[in-house]
Computed example of a mutant assay.
Amino acid sequence: MRRFDAVLCDLDGVLRIYDPDGLALERDFGLEAGTVTSVAFAPDLVHRALTGDITDEEWQAAIGDRLTALCGSAEGAARLVRAFVEAPHRVDAPVLDLLTRVRERVPVVLVTNATTRLERDLARVGLLDAVDAIVNSSAVGVAKPDRRIYEIAADRAGVSTDRCLFIDDHADNVRVSEELGMTGVLYRDPRDLREALAPLLNGGAAS
């Protein structure tokens, strides 16, 4: 008997990859690299955005307010926020191919900590229909590594948690999945995913 009947997959760092130099604009304002992301992902702010307490637009406005004092003007802050939101990224084609192929055998569910902008972003890059279901933390009100989001994802896939393969690039997220009985995969590159899916993709049963 195979080990899983559904694949739950993270988005950023797995299927969607951002350009590490996408915020080079920071240098124009005399800011150190990483300043914008440190502001945007300040725990007291990002948690509210990722759990739907505030919208993506409200999150952006709050980031802009905090950046204004750092860069010297509201106009400059707005440019930095826009660069952050529109940071260059790409869909990892090998990962998408693997997920597309495995969908022929089992449901694939995207499980991601994201803001209310997620569906618009996915539609823009053609990913909205690339999976069987999407579990967006801001839509369900809980974010990884809260165990409830894993349970929601398993329910969307129509299987019990112990019948899920979970892929994520954060060790804490994988650890919680394993505590729920899932088969966890700490993702580093497409080879990790290919190895985990090999039994299904090769036509055999995952044991």
Score class of each variant (00 low, 15 high):
Met1Thr: 07
Met1His: 10
Asp5Met: 07
Ala6Tyr: 03
Ala6Asn: 04
Leu8Pro: 03
Cys9Arg: 00
Val14Asp: 03
Ile17Gln: 04
Asp21Pro: 00
Gly22Ser: 14
Gly22Leu: 13
Arg27Glu: 15
Arg27Lys: 14
Asp28Asn: 07
Ala33Glu: 10
Ala33Thr: 12
Ala33Tyr: 05
Thr37Asp: 03
Val39Phe: 09
Ala42Trp: 12
Asp44Ile: 03
Leu45Arg: 10
His47Phe: 12
Ala49Tyr: 10
Thr51Gln: 08
Gly52Tyr: 01
Ile54Arg: 06
Asp56Gln: 00
Gly64Glu: 09
Arg66Gln: 09
Cys71Ser: 13
Cys71Gly: 11
Cys71Trp: 08
Ala74Ile: 08
Ala74Asn: 10
Glu75Ser: 15
Ala78Gly: 07
Ala78Arg: 11
Val81Trp: 03
Arg82Pro: 04
Glu86Thr: 10
Pro88Ile: 01
Asp92His: 13
Arg101Asn: 06
Val109Asn: 05
Thr112Lys: 00
Thr112Cys: 05
Thr116Lys: 02
Thr116Cys: 02
Thr116Ile: 01
Arg117Pro: 04
Leu118Arg: 01
Glu119Leu: 14
Asp121Ala: 11
Gly126Asp: 06
Gly126Glu: 09
Val131Lys: 07
Val131Met: 13
Ala133His: 10
Val135Trp: 02
Val140Ala: 15
Arg148Asn: 11
Ala153Lys: 08
Gly158Lys: 04
Ser160Gly: 07
Asp162Met: 01
Asp162Pro: 09
Arg163Thr: 03
Leu165Gln: 02
Phe166Asp: 01
Asp168Lys: 02
Asp169Trp: 05
His170Ser: 12
His170Gly: 08
Asn173Pro: 00
Val174Leu: 10
Arg175Gln: 04
Val176Pro: 10
Val176Arg: 04
Glu179Trp: 13
Leu180Ile: 07
Val185Thr: 04
Asp189Gln: 15
Pro190Cys: 14
Leu197Glu: 09
Pro199Tyr: 13
Gly204Gln: 02
Ala205Thr: 10
